[in-house]
Nucleic acid binder design. Sequence first.
RNA 1: GGAGAGAUGGCCGAGUGGUCGAAGGCGCAGCACUGGAAAUGCUGUAACGGGGUAACUCGUUCGAGGGUUCGAAUCCCUCUCUCUCCGCCA
Length: 427
Amino acid sequence: MLDLKLIREQPTQVQELLNRRDSEGYDIQPILDLDRQQREIETKRSKLSAKGNEIGKTVGQKIRTGSDPKGAEIAALKEEGNNIKAQLAELEPQEKELKAHIENLLLQLPNLPNESTPIGKDETENVEIRRWGDEYISQDKKVLPHWEIGEQLGILEFKRAVKIAQSRFVNLVGAGAALERALINFMLDKQIEAGYTEIMPPVLVNTQSLTATGQLPKFAEESFKCDEDDLWLTPTAEVPLTNLYRGEILEASQLPIHHCAYTPCFRREAGSYGKDTRGLIRLHQFNKVELVKLVHPDNSEAEHQALVQNAEAILQALKLPYRVIELCTGDLGFGAAKCYDLEVWLPTSNTYREISSCSNFHDFQARRGDIRFKEAGKKGTKYLHTLNGSGLAIGRTMAAILENYQLPNGTVEIPEVLQPYIKREVL
RNA sequence: GGAGAGAUGGCCGAGUGGUCGAAGGCGCAGCACUGGAAAUGCUGUAACGGGGUAACUCGUUCGAGGGUUCGAAUCCCUCUCUCUCCGCCA
């Protein structure tokens, strides 16, 4: 959520930054108008309230010092008090409604892109920052797509998963399941070593949690909902991890907080019909190790760079070729101010595919989730900055391994760092 | 699912109609003591919104929403959540 005060005080700059995302998608004018109305009413209302409080106090004093509670003097004051109450009864609902309306509009506005975020209209204008691991790109043209090799090896089973659930689900079988577990453990171990504290959170989350991280209210159709209970299947561990501290005021000395978590993730993938229909790339349920940071605003840029490196370290350890791109303003996620994607090389599609997305949200989520900190000795509180990144998406990592580590004889080599986990060298 | 208890400041916790934005403690900050520190003593310390360059000032907030009253943390109603016991169960 954007700071209403910032919108009020620097409307031109705010509008300009929003236009960088989409030149006509967002208009802050209605918010400015409502805000002005709201403040006018607030001024009126609080003056009236002050008068009413004054009368209340006077009545109390008079009665205590001997006035007749049923006398004319008290009756007159009560009359005036009732009068004010009647006026307030008109103003208060108006103010409340305006506030709710403003809040509602604010919740629909995306974050402002960082000044440094490259300007562009869509993913074609994202900027490649660096590549790693070209030397590991195989020149072999006969590589099979990962779903074919997975089915051949009997480790991926799509048809029966469809029977159990529906399309876009998979069964991992035997060594496939073992490889998935190995990847989860390897990634967690690596991130714990890098200083993240592991959490195993609930994967059902409530509406408030999804609102804080920005999936709601705008993207309700993207998540699975349990209607009876105000619970949703989490689309990413970003949600439970970021919400760990929702509504709390932390001490500055507690920051930074670094958490990692493995969870299954659930996405409806509404509107992606026909895209990536085969394989592990786009499933309704997938596993992911997620990294989340809550940091002091002064450090968020450095923390962001470090986060990207923590994610990259996994790909490097697995010797999977990848590139880092920075998303342009037109491709930036709703809550992100700045975002780097890691894209892993998939030889059969002859392209790089997203395997991690590392975003800095600045105070956007913290404001929605009311996550603040206070500095010892200083008055007041501040919103902290939140960041998150995949470290990494497990299914896509599995796909990348199956394709990049294929041997001519149809088997797949296990990356060296995983061998201790899975206790074999070849699939 | 049945019965009961509870939700108060950064944290813990007292408070059953006006003197309550709220005792006390912890934490934090300042000062004193000390070579320095610990301990101790004194003092200060809620958030949010509006107005003001500022000092400051007004309002709102004691889980949420309604109600009674001139006046509600306190009384009434509804809801949410938490805890305890019983039942069921991985």
